[in-house]
Every structure is written in structure tokens, then in C-alpha cells.
């Protein structure tokens, strides 16, 4: 640890490169807390957006218009409006309504900024996931479904054992792209003062006046995060690969 700190001190003294998180414990703690918040935000949003996507795709395959129509409107609306405005709508507009009275008689928000960010990002990415899963399900050949029908599988068994495993594999590339975008989009939480990575970095550079250095660290950190996700997705895709099928 000390050698690392010495190295960053030397960078500063010899070249004037101020990577404060390298030698300043306070800045480092702040930055790592931001990183941790971004990771939490990403993981929670990924999980919830997948749930939204699966449920949405289920509902869109329903034969009942009453189920299909609201999901269709939700998907269309969330896909075609800016995620930042959605986030503001949730945090400022809905957040102003959803308040509770505290013991001291004051008024406090019912949902924290972090939670609003998770909700907003999950719905935005979930709308896209719905579309991705739906087209994956539709790409499963009808004749494969007929084969399972003629073997006596019920609709639900067909869905579980044939449609979902194949649809997941078909969807995986687009799903990966969307999840990578979701991780990048978590930086929007900065706008509602969630202390995530960008927020922490901005705090540091406005105190230390080391915009150039912090900015570079920040970009590299995001690219590292995305790289980790891409690696996980790649492993997953490899694990799901069917020999002789697909490209």
C-alpha cells in the first residue's frame, strides 16, 4: 500500500499529475464508496430489469388484449422518451407526492433517491428487455413447438422446456448490449444526487481541482466495469452455447 502511495506522491511531485485517490485516504474512500454505489445500482437494476423483461414478454405473448395493451404502451412509451426525464419524473414529480410524515411532524420522502434511480433504470431497461425477450420467443420456430405439442407437452411445459431455453440463447447478444448500456446509464443517478461513481469523482475534482486526472480515472473505471460485465456475459454465453447450433 505504502509503495503505491509513494508512487502516486512521486507522480504528483515530479509531473504534477494529481491522482489524489492514490495517496489521499479520504478521497480514496469517497471514490470507492461511489464505485460500490454504482455496482449496487447496476446489479439491482440488472436484476429488476430482467424480471420486468420476462414478465413483460410473458404478458405480450398473452392472447388477452387487456394484458397485452398496457405492456405495449409501457414498452413504447419508455423506449421513446429520455431516461433522464423519466428519472426526474419519478424523483421530483412522483417523489413529491409519495411522502410520509415523520415522528417530529415533518415530511420526509418515502422512497430514497437511490431507490428511485433503481426503479427508473429498471423500468427503462426492462422495457427494452421486454422487446428483446419477445422477439427471442417469436424466433423459436413454430415447428419445434408443434413437435413438443405432438409429444404431449402442455403449453406451459413447452414454454418451460423448449421456448425459454431457446429464446434466452437467441436473445443473449441483444440482452448483453442492453445490460452494458444499463451500467453506463447508472451515471444519470448523479442528476438526483445519488453518490455514485460520477458524483464521487465530481466531488473530488471540485475540491482538488484535478479534473483532468480524475476524469481519466473515471472513464477508465467505467470501462473496467463494462469489461467485467462483458466478461461475465461472455462466460454465460459460452456456457449456454449449443454445439452445432447458431452462429
Amino acid at each position: 500500500m505504502e509503495t503505491v502511495e509513494t508512487f502516486f506522491q512521486w507522480l504528483r511531485q515530479s509531473y504534477g499529475i494529481k491522482i489524489t485517490i492514490g495517496y489521499d485516504a479520504w478521497d480514496r474512500a469517497q471514490f470507492l464508496a461511489g464505485l460500490w454505489t454504482t455496482v449496487k445500482l447496476s446489479v439491482l437494476s440488472i436484476i429488476f430489469s430482467l424480471i420486468v423483461g420476462v414478465i413483460g414478454a410473458f404478458a405480450q405473448g398473452s392472447k388477452y388484449l387487456i394484458l397485452r395493451a398496457p405492456i405495449g404502451i409501457f414498452v413504447t412509451f419508455f423506449r421513446n422518451t429520455p431516461p433522464l426525464v423519466q428519472l426526474y419524473f419519478f424523483f421530483f414529480a412522483l417523489g413529491s407526492v409519495l411522502r410520509v410524515t415523520t415522528e417530529t411532524g415533518g415530511s420526509a420522502p418515502m422512497v430514497s433517491a437511490f431507490s428511485w434511480a433503481v426503479i427508473s433504470l429498471s423500468l427503462f431497461a426492462g422495457a427494452l428487455n421486454t422487446e428483446i425477450f419477445r422477439s427471442g420467443i417469436e424466433a423459436v420456430p413454430k415447428s419445434t413447438l408443434e413437435a413438443s405439442e405432438s409429444l404431449g407437452f402442455t403449453r406451459f411445459q413447452t414454454y418451460l422446456y423448449v421456448v425459454l431455453p431457446l429464446a434466452l440463447r437467441i436473445s443473449l447478444p441483444s440482452l448483453g448490449t442492453n445490460l452494458v448500456n444499463l451500467v453506463k446509464t447508472t451515471s444519470l443517478a448523479y442528476a438526483i444526487a445519488v453518490p455514485e461513481l460520477l458524483y464521487a469523482a465530481a466531488q473530488i475534482w471540485s475540491e482538488q481541482l484535478n479534473v483532468r486526472e480524475m476524469m481519466t480515472v473515471l472513464l477508465l473505471t467505467y470501462i473496467l466495469l463494462v469489461a467485467v460485465l462483458v466478461w461475465i456475459l461472455g462466460r454465460w454465453e459460452k456456457a449456454l452455447r449449443i454445439p452445432g447450433y447458431g452462429v
Binding site: S148, R169, I242, G244
Partner: peptide, 10 residues
Amino acid sequence: VFQQYNLFPH
């Protein structure tokens, strides 16, 4: 049995 076999590819 179908013309296109329709095996489950996975």
C-alpha cells in the same frame, strides 16, 4: 415424425 425433424436443438 416431421419433415424437418424438429428436434430440440438445446
